[in-house]
Amino acid sequence: MSMTPPKSGAELLNMSYLDMRSHLLEVAAAFDRIERAGGADDPRLELLRQVGRIALDAKPDRARRFLERLSE
């Protein structure tokens, strides 16, 4: 049985906005850093782009789908 979250979506956004901003910025900066260093011929980069799209899409269960995409 699920638990009803005591906080509203707006309150949760206030709690996590800076964390979300920080994590997304770190990803952006890491892609820039790798690119500045000449890039890498590594399939993990494309996988990261794919799961990045999952993280930002408009469908539910993003975390589960993110992990499934990275699973063997």
């Binding site: 049985m1 699920s2 638990m3 009803t4 979250p5 996590s16 964390d19 975390a63």
Partner: peptide, 14 residues
């Protein structure tokens, strides 16, 4: 920690 609490909320603590 946040993802654990997300899971508790979505699936329950059982």
């Amino acid at each position: 920690p946040a993802r654990v609490v997300d899971t508790l909320e979505q699936l329950g603590p059982e």
